[in-house]
């Protein structure tokens, strides 16, 4: 038997019923939603309502996650993530005890699917939302930790980014509890694994890179260079380059700083957007000057006579006025 699979060997199938040992709530399993390092998540139904149930044989890890979800509740309702509904133990037919907790089932699309379907301009906007949430979390003394594309979903009404797995959430000043290599600044040798706001901002920048490199990439022998090269060579990220660069190199001390920069870029982007699409040149400024000077004489020639009109018009008005005045004098 495979020891690795034995450890996560929770054999729960659709139709199974999970009864809580302490609170006696009854959950009917509908389907599996995912599987992680700590246990599996299932869609379940209780009293006609759907919910997500996470179950694991690692009781202590479940308890730690529950602690985090409880703090979220304290922070600000359930804006930050799924809200916690129940915590309990389950004794399976064979007599083994598992710990589980039940949380609100957030229905939505994965971040990458959503952005691909609805347009790339959403990426920056969703990141802006994320920065707002992170800012709130950081102010409460917590860092998200395991921030990655898989942990983010977009709910439909309203269209909002929400995070689903809070297992990595760590108090500021401690060591990051859980992380994923590609999104971890320690792995890229760009900083420590101490929980501080800049740790999350690095991961957020990696989420943006990851969107255009869904297969991820290796760090190579000099990780920082690899990262910078990828950033420079990802054309659609050009407008965000300075912002992402600062996040990757730990220049932002707070998510508010990054939020300010990002929202400035997004506001600017609107007018350059069209020129970017046609030119597909990384450097927005040159493409703009090129367009202004030479290539379209048609529009220029149309515009210029119109610009001369005002003087002609005023002259004509003066002539007419004089004519009327003259007539008035004659008639009068």
């Amino acid at each position: 038997m495979n020891p690795t699979s034995k450890k996560q060997g929770i054999n729960v199938r659709p139709g199974d019923v999970i009864n809580g040992k302490w609170h006696h709530n009854r959950y009917v399993i509908l389907k599996q939603l995912g599987q992680g390092a700590i246990g599996s998540v299932y869609l379940c139904e209780s009293n006609g309502k759907k919910a997500a149930l996470k179950i694991s044989d690692k009781g202590s890890s479940v308890t730690m996650e529950v602690n985090v979800l409880k703090t979220f509740k304290k922070v600000q309702g359930n804006r930050l993530g799924p809200s916690l509904l129940d915590v309990d133990d389950w004794i399976d037919p064979r007599g083994r005890t598992y710990s589980f907790y039940v949380m609100e089932y957030l229905k939505g699309e994965e971040l990458s699917t959503f952005v691909r379907r609805h347009g790339q301009e959403w990426l920056g906007i969703l990141m802006l939302q994320l920065l707002e949430d992170l800012s709130n979390l950081h102010k409460q003394g917590w860092v998200f930790g395991d921030l990655k594309t898989d942990n983010l979903i977009v709910t439909h009404a309203p269209r909002r980014l929400k995070w689903i797995d809070v297992g990595g959430t760590t108090q500021i000043g401690r060591s990051i509890k859980e992380y994923t290599e590609f999104f971890d600044r320690g792995y890229w040798q760009m900083g420590s694994r101490k929980a501080e706001p800049s740790y999350d901002l690095f991961s957020l920048a990696m989420v943006m890179l990851h969107f255009y490199h869904p297969k991820r990439f290796e760090r190579g022998s000099s990780p920082e260079k690899t990262l910078m090269r990828k950033l420079r060579n990802t054309a659609p990220l050009k407008p965000y380059e300075s912002c992402i660069y600062k996040a990757l190199t730990g220049k932002y001390m707070s998510s508010d700083q990054m939020r300010q920069d990002l929202s400035m870029i997004l506001m600017q982007r609107k007018d350059t957007n069209t020129s970017q699409n046609t030119a597909r040149r990384p450097n927005v400024q040159t493409s703009r000057t090129v367009r202004g000077n030479t290539p379209k004489p048609n529009t220029n020639s149309k515009k210029q006579p119109r610009q001369e009109h005002p003087t002609l018009e005023s002259l004509a008005i003066i002539v007419v006025v004089f004519l009327f005045y003259f007539l008035y004098l004659i008639l009068g």
Binding site: W22, G59, S60, T63, M64, V66, N67, K70, V87, D88, D89, T97, S99
Partner: peptide, 16 residues
């Protein structure tokens, strides 16, 4: 720890 109800378990885990 396992014999404690989930609520108290959380507090103990915080200590751990």
């Amino acid at each position: 720890l396992e014999e404690l109800p989930p609520e108290q378990r959380g507090e103990v885990m915080e200590v751990v």
